[in-house]
Design a protein around this nucleic acid. Sequence first.
RNA 1: GGCCCCUUCGUCUAGCGGUUAGGACGUCGGCCUCUCACGCCGAAAACAUGGGUUCAAGUCCCGUAGGGGUCACCA
Length: 471
Amino acid sequence: MSPPRLRFAPSPTGYLHIGGARTALFNWLWARRTGGTFVLRVEDTDRERSTEEAVRAILEGMRWLGLDWDEGPEVGGPHGPYFQTQRLEIYRAHAERLVRGGRAFACYCTKEELEAGRRLAEAEKRQFRYPGTCREKPYDPSRRHVVRFRMPEAGATTYRDMVKGPITTPHETLQDEVILRGDGIPLYNFGALVDDITMGITLVARGDDHVNNTARQILMYQALGAEPPAFAHLPMILGADRTRLSKRHGATSVTAYRDMGYLPGAVVNYLARIGWSHGDQEIFSLEELVRLFDFEDVGATAGVFNPDKMLWVNHEWLRALDDAALARAALPFFRAAGLPAEDDAKLRRIAAMARERARTLAEVAGQFRYFYEPIRLDPGARARFLVPASGPLLRAVRDGIAEMGSPDVARLERLFQGVAEGRGLGLGKVAQPVRVALTGGTASPSIYDVVLALGREESLARLDAAIALAG
RNA sequence: GGCCCCUUCGUCUAGCGGUUAGGACGUCGGCCUCUCACGCCGAAAACAUGGGUUCAAGUCCCGUAGGGGUCACCA
């Protein structure tokens, strides 16, 4: 068998959605695993809602995730153009073939007539189906018309879904549906199918909200004399309330997660794990995913998007970065927070401290602002630790540091322990006031690391300020 | 409502006739400890339900309930 050709075909009506991203990912993974081809096609036939901005946002999201395409916008390919609005002639020609072959017909009914029929059906509490009004009317291209596909009235179509198994659709549930609108623009079912045929797509993997379209499309493939592709319908991603994931459930755009400080690999990792699994493994590199992914292992049940777990996955990815890589990744987030960080030794020290503490890059910047701006003294911390009793302790630490030429962990440790033991105190009694003095709060990395990242001079200055406050 | 799909801890899932039903996130204890975090140890927590089939059912079949999807000159 020759390598498969797969595609991702988003409508540019908004940003790249988490659900769409997973669909794209599964297609991409299979293409990369099998040495197949991954095509990106833009289904922009909904002119009301499609925007150029959305196209850019989607490509941007795809690129950020690392899902590169072999054919499509900006890269071209032998089956272009890759925007549906530039392929109108192709759909028209295919529709005409169907009309000439008697498999489709022109329908002159107006929207109003159809709507009236629908309302009547509703009033009578029965199912509306196109009554076949124009089925036998002669073709008159000069009259405004839509093109309808002639659906068979009896029998059933069965296909084997790669994730759901055999699915049967009785033909009496189908109707002569519109494939070409009055303005010559194809409807989804037809445009996608004509593109899939002309682009040589051999495996269609899409959201399972499309299962009901599949039998109709197979019928159209057959009418056009084309071999239907294999189908894999991916279960939806749901929100916590088990309805379709939407903005109500929180951020749903891929780029929103980028901006919140998620790593693309982590997002891919998490997305892959909803609906797909490989034994007990949770963390996968992109290479592993490519090597292990199989539609065989995609589950049939819809999955709830779990932000907590994604955060955990992101943390796992974050901590796998070395200091330099983490510093580089976090730098833009410090800048975005208005903090004058540089890609230098100090930032790498901070990265080392952040590794086990911050789960996103934004958290890195958020947790360690005090290294780049004056402390924001927490009132509770001040009341508890910057009290007269702390004065001598702070002063002793201050003097000890002042005497050190260049502080290091071992020296600082000796200093703090000496101060504590000299007074019969636990280490915490000394470390906490210092921590408040240097960071403004009671929670931070090791106090020695904080001193080191802050630097001798800044540490002394903050200690002096705290001594004054302690009185 | 018609049609289609789905149903293992709160969530993601492993399981592919014989398991003390496993892992992960989250939650709750404990340990570690200069605080926080990490880490480690432990706990609570699931086969929707009723019938079959079988020596044996979370695993196969049917029904019921629940959930989701879809019924446009949207995609």
